[in-house]
Write a protein that binds this DNA or RNA. Structure first.
Length: 501
RNA sequence: GGUCUCGUGGCCGAGUGGCUAGGCAGAGCUCUGCAAAAGCUCCUACAGCGGUUCGAAUCCGCUCGAGACCUCCA
């Protein structure tokens, strides 16, 4: 039986505001889209939280047997910072600043983004389309919206007519807004404004002659509107209606709201069945963002070079830190929290190493209650993840499992007291959840071999010293290693393990 | 100003009507040549006030506090 049938997934659908049973349109296939980065500068940790959240969704759905097509875009076409045609195009701005062609900027930061994803063990999506690679699709979509009467052209730009749209459809359903309030909230149009209504938004924007990024269109040279790419590419690769659309909370309005309007305006059907929004990473209670100047860059984390950090943190400790909270809650970023996460992460990984070394011996007398306990833990891993991808709850279960693992390792508990099927199931679940579902892995894998050899050598010397009762020497070796951050651990049976701090 | 969210033990964070979250820190015990690790035990909270209920951290109301969106942002 497929795991997704045994452990049905529920998702907090931000469209309905309720937790709903997840039923894909065409099981076992799942279509999932999440908004990727605009590649005009380095991604920061806040961005990474969202990518990590949907990485785990992708991983888990895949793990339980769904065939997931996961589309995450790269926004490499510049967009004006507001729809009135004022403001700046960030990619264009950056290009002028660095004296580069916009596509050089885009290339540079796309590569940087991929590098960071690799470091944080964020899997590549199954399709990673770019906005500039889908100008044709976007133009076609604009045409359809015009044909359907929901957009109008002014001076080479095309605007979505929100008022017209709302005569037949709902606008603001996702973000819980109504048009009247939005009108009140927006400033009045000035004389130069091309829009009929302040809440209309550009789906194609004509650009002045000095603008570098530009594409020909039926309305003249210009750039696509900034909400349009997701609609066009989502439709192209996932269909007019697909299962899951994710993104950060701050994209809910206007970005996702506009996506819905465009898709309905073009195809007459709601594009997404389950909307998921991940919450913000905060610093001292405030949203981490570039504009607030409180963002952390990945390399500042690895090197500990940020003024608010007391030390460097490994990427996997940070990933673990993010998984310790639910994606829909805000998560506060601090040294103390990171320190705690680092230790918790190590504990989990130590148990993982121990478990990999464990093999089931001959079964002796079966301990029923132990067997039931292990089966329950396996079950709870799945139930927790199926409950709206509750990674925090899942980690709590994994910690319980690690205690059982350490019992087996130390001999506190006899492995023979359970049958080998139970053990294999337990073992596979622990390994799979940590590595595949949560995407946690050992850091520093490259240097490990060399280091392992060196330390092993010292361990052998120390073993001899202890056999000779030369404790002065054995302690010296242990203490000197400790000073360098290598902690030796003497086992009951004379084996010596170590841990790098 | 409008809309909305949140306020959990020393810290971080799950939990949305009754049953122990978990991690980190702290205390103790076991194991151990010592140390570390590990296991076990303890520290048992839900912003304040009122209400609903047999029973509320969980539902309702008010108060206080924090934050988000309404402009680009994951």
């Amino acid at each position: 039986m497929d795991l997704f049938k045994k452990y049905p997934v529920s998702i907090s659908n931000t469209l309905s505001g309720k937790k709903e049973k997840f039923e894909p349109l065409n099981p076992p296939f799942v279509g999932m889209y999440s908004c990727g980065p605009t590649v005009y500068s380095e991604v920061h940790l806040g961005n990474l939280r969202t990518f990590t959240a949907f990485d785990v969704v992708f991983r888990y759905l895949t793990h339980i047997g769904y065939k997931v097509r996961y589309v995450r875009n790269i926004t490499d076409a510049g967009h004006l910072t507001n729809d009135a045609g004022e403001g700046v195009d960030r990619i264009e701005e950056r290009a002028r600043l660095e004296q580069l062609e916009p596509m050089e900027i885009v290339q540079k930061y796309t590569i940087g983004f991929h590098e960071v994803c690799r470091i944080f063990n964020i899997l590549p999506p199954t399709i990673e389309p770019t906005a500039t690679g889908h100008i044709v699709e976007q133009i076609e979509m604009v045409k359809k919206i015009i044909e359907n009467g929901y957009a109008y052209e002014v001076n080479g730009s095309v605007y979505f007519d929100v008022n017209k749209f709302s005569e037949k459809h709902k606008y603001g359903e996702l973000s819980g807004r109504n048009i009247e309030e939005l009108m009140d909230g927006s400033r009045a149009l000035n004389r130069q404004d091309e829009k009929r209504n302040p809440i209309d938004f550009a789906i194609w924007k004509g650009v002045p002659p000095n603008h570098i990024q530009r594409w020909p269109s039926p309305w003249g040279e210009g750039i696509p509107g900034w909400h349009l790419e997701c609609s066009a590419m989502g439709t192209k690769y996932l269909g007019k209606q697909f299962d899951i659309h994710g993104g950060g909370m701050d994209l809910k309005f206007p970005h996702h709201e506009c996506e819905i309007a465009q898709s309905v305006g073009a195809y007459g059907i709601a594009p997404v069945r389950y909307w998921m929004h991940s919450n913000m990473l905060t610093v001292n209670g405030e949203k981490m963002s570039k504009s607030k100047g409180n963002s952390f860059l990945p390399h500042e984390l690895f090197t500990g070079s940020h003024p608010l950090l007391t030390k460097a943190y490994a990427p996997m400790a940070v990933r673990f830190f993010m998984l310790q909270s639910h994606y829909s809650s805000t998560l506060d970023f601090s040294n103390d929290a990171l320190n705690a996460a680092e230790k918790g992460y190590r504990k989990l990984m130590n148990a993982l190493d121990a478990l990999k070394e464990l093999n089931h011996p001959k079964t002796t007398a079966i301990n029923e209650s132990l067997k039931n306990d292990l089966d329950r833990l396996v079950d709870e891993c799945y139930l927790s993840m199926s409950d709206d991808f509750n990674t925090a709850k899942t980690l709590a279960v994994l910690f319980e499992m690690s205690a059982r693992i350490n019992d087996f390792k130390s001999g506190n508990q006899d492995l023979g007291a359970i049958d080998s099927n139970t053990f294999t199931h337990f073992k596979n679940t622990y390994i799979n959840f940590i590595q595949e579902v949560l995407g946690l892995r050992e850091d520093n894998a490259q240097d490990e071999q060399l280091l392992n050899g060196l330390i092993q050598m010292l361990i052998d010397i120390r073993k001899k010293a202890r056999t000779d009762k030369n404790f002065a020497l054995s302690d010296e070796i242990r203490d000197d290693l400790k000073a360098m951050g290598v902690q030796l651990k003497d086992g009951k049976d004379g084996t010596i393990d170590y841990e790098i701090e």
